[in-house]
Computed example of a mutant assay.
Amino acid sequence: MTVRLLVSVRNAGEALEAAEAGADFIDLKEPADGALGALPPERIAQIVAVLRAGWRGVRISATVGDLPAHEQAEILRRVRRVAACGVDYVKVGLWPAAPAASRALLDALAACPAKVVPVLVADAGVDPALVSYALARAAFPALMLDTAQKGRGSLLQRLPLPVLAGFVEKVHAGGALAGLAGSLRADDASALRALAPDFAGFRGAVTRGERSAALDPRRVRLLRRRLAAGTRAPLAAAA
């Protein structure tokens, strides 16, 4: 199975570079502002317009920022504003604290017209009950895992592979797409192929330094090949 590549970008230039390098999903976020740092709606709309003009086959997502679930009214306001920019999916984080607030937020998100992708922040593990609750809403096209503490290693280093495999299988059984993200590295490609999520999200692994540094299209191209073929070619070999 080929794992589709999601690349997070912060401006139109990076978006075009990622699309040209083979990214399947372009994710609009501000990496300097947290795990799901949001871009201004005006910039989101600009990037969407640029991509729609030349890359109609690329799926576009955007985040609403790192907000706790109890700020439901503000989250829904941001979801509406981001959806109005023309993205395909709006990503909303679900943080591990306050499960009751997370369930209430899922109910509210399921009732809104936007295509919302809940992102479970999994630094401390995966909450199977919350995954089941989200799937039971039958309203979300995909569920993702991500991490907030980016400096503590890849998601695949921080959670046992059987836990990640169980998440992917459960989401697939529930009829949704499964996504994995969280400081993923190029060397995670073969393990990701074995886990078989529908897509995997990257930022730091495709920049010229830290995750807030500029995008490196060479790394995007190499990562795309690794996800497709499971190779382990050195980054320096990227064209």
Score class of each variant (00 low, 15 high):
Val3Ile: 09
Arg4Glu: 01
Leu5Gly: 02
Leu6His: 01
Ser8Cys: 12
Ser8Met: 02
Arg10Cys: 12
Asn11Ser: 13
Glu14Trp: 02
Glu14Phe: 06
Ala18Arg: 00
Ala19Gly: 00
Asp24Pro: 09
Gly37Arg: 07
Gly37Asp: 13
Ala38Ser: 15
Pro41Lys: 13
Pro41Gly: 05
Pro41Arg: 14
Glu42Ala: 15
Arg43Met: 14
Val48Met: 13
Leu51Ile: 12
Trp55Met: 02
Gly57His: 09
Gly57Asp: 14
Ser61His: 07
Pro68Asn: 06
Gln72Glu: 13
Ala73Tyr: 01
Ile75Leu: 12
Arg80Glu: 15
Arg81Cys: 08
Ala83Lys: 04
Tyr89Leu: 15
Val90Trp: 04
Gly93Asn: 10
Leu94Ser: 09
Leu94Cys: 07
Ala98Ile: 06
Pro99Ile: 09
Pro99Trp: 07
Arg103Trp: 13
Leu106Gln: 07
Asp107Ile: 08
Ala110Lys: 08
Val116Asn: 11
Val116Trp: 04
Ala122Ile: 04
Asp123Ala: 07
Gly125Asp: 02
Ala129His: 04
Leu130Val: 05
Val131Arg: 06
Ser132Asp: 14
Ala134Lys: 05
Ala139Pro: 04
Ala139Arg: 07
Pro141Asn: 11
Leu143Phe: 14
Met144Phe: 15
Leu145Asp: 01
Leu145Gln: 06
Ala148Lys: 13
Ser154Leu: 00
Leu155Val: 02
Leu155Arg: 04
Gln157Met: 07
Leu159Asp: 06
Leu159Thr: 10
Pro162Met: 02
Gly166Met: 02
Val168Asn: 13
Glu169Ser: 14
His172Phe: 02
Ala173Lys: 14
Gly174Pro: 10
Ala178Glu: 08
Gly179His: 02
Gly182Gln: 10
Ala189Cys: 01
Ala189Asp: 02
Asp198Leu: 01
Phe202Asn: 03
Phe202Ile: 01
Arg211Ala: 06
Ser212Phe: 01
Ala213Asp: 15
Ala214Ser: 09
Leu215Thr: 12
Leu215Ile: 15
Arg219Tyr: 02
Arg219Met: 02
Arg221Thr: 15
Arg224Val: 01
Arg226Phe: 03
Leu227Lys: 05
Ala228Glu: 14
Thr231Met: 08
Arg232Val: 04
Arg232Phe: 03
Ala233His: 10
Ala237Asn: 03
Ala237Cys: 11
Ala239His: 09
Ala239Pro: 15
